[in-house]
Design a protein around this nucleic acid. Structure first.
Lengths: 126, 126, 126, 126
DNA sequence: GTGGTCTAGACCACG
DNA sequence: GTGGTCTAGACCACG
């Protein structure tokens, strides 16, 4: 499983794992019903503790993106496109919201903000 | 000094203080050369530990927005409009950047992102 | 043999099998002396491991509801109506007991509890 | 803090702790805003691991009964009587439900069930 | 093999 | 002092 962990401590390891798996689900790399690696296998692969991988899976379970069956393993929840789209937009709003609120506090106009958004959008590697 | 602290723990208190002072500088409420309250005075006023206000001022010093002179007090750094504008845009980019990167990962087009930005911009209280 | 297994993990599979066979005995679908399917046959039918069906039968043997005769098979124990009635009430008490104990801890009166029981009884599909 | 732990393994320790604190909240022994012991203090007192007490507190946080503030401690959530009553009845239904469903499967009438409930209610120590 | 739970330490940020 | 996170082991139930 392709997951990159940064030990620089800016974000808990379990959160880094969770968010990357989440994105794999969002992008269809992991699909409904797909089995995730066992918490122990993934722990070995990433060289972290079992508790850390378990914690990551717990986060995703809270969001109903995966489902753990004791003794069986962990699987991507069956979900339709609508559910995923909702999840994605919700997540995006949570991140864009504070930034835009701040832009307004700073006194930027809508035009200035969208211009900045466009610049950043184009800057980033496609 | 007008600073509102949320004890709900979603953000460290020192960071809340720092960001609010920063915004007062950005918005001209605090201007070049203005004296800030002493860390002890501010601590009393906000009913927090002196360590907390000290930490907040340290953050702002790192960003060169304020300057502490031993035995005299703490003052807003002399800065021109260009410097402040740069700071503001830099800060905004740091927040918008990850959100926009994510929007692209999710597969949203520039049009969809700007539409979402506009919606959020209009939603927020002016 | 009519047994429905839920893979959702809320209850061990062996327990699901055991309880459903138990209910078939209680309700007379399985009667004294009736032969149960062999653990291997049942395992195939339900698509579970032989270990699982064996474990289920062991549970029922502990309760003296079935009896395994080496080389012959497994049979519903000879029992009279009194024995079965006792078993049923005993089982029910085990489940109702903790709930009612809790109701008292919470401070509900007998009237309130029986009212709640009546509501739930009527709610459930007959 | 008065909490009794059974090591017999029928229920995880963290769940035992959580349920007993929950009952103290329900019964007014712990009231809105009251501080709970720190996870480390409680761990020492109960002679369990810190992770176990933390896990217990996490369970209660999921149910919005307590609130943890990093660096401050853990507190009983401000809640009104209506909220608590709802919680209590909800919990009770979850326990009574399966038992009553079973009673019906066994073929008991509402009268028989309520009679049994009454017997158990009176049997238990007041 | 799978998860579930637990221990007894550790280091960190915040205050 | 407070939580938050993590490790490197362990034993268990289920299958």
């Amino acid at each position: 499983m392709k997951i990159i962990i940064s030990q620089t401590g800016d974000q808990p390891i379990y959160a880094q794992i969770a968010v990357q798996i989440k994105h794999q689900i969002f992008n269809g790399i992991l699909q409904s019903g797909d089995a995730l690696p066992s918490i122990r296998k993934l722990a070995k692969e990433l060289k972290v503790s079992v508790i850390t991988t378990k914690r990551a899976y717990e986060e995703l379970e809270k969001e109903a993106l995966i489902r753990t069956v004791a003794g069986k393993g962990t699987f991507v929840t069956a979900h339709d496109q609508f559910f995923l789209h909702e999840k994605r937009v919700e997540e995006l709003k949570e991140k864009l919201g504070p930034a835009i609120r701040e832009a307004k506090e700073i006194g930027l106009s809508l035009q200035e903000v969208t211009a900045l958004v466009e610049t950043i959008f184009r800057e980033e590697a496609p």
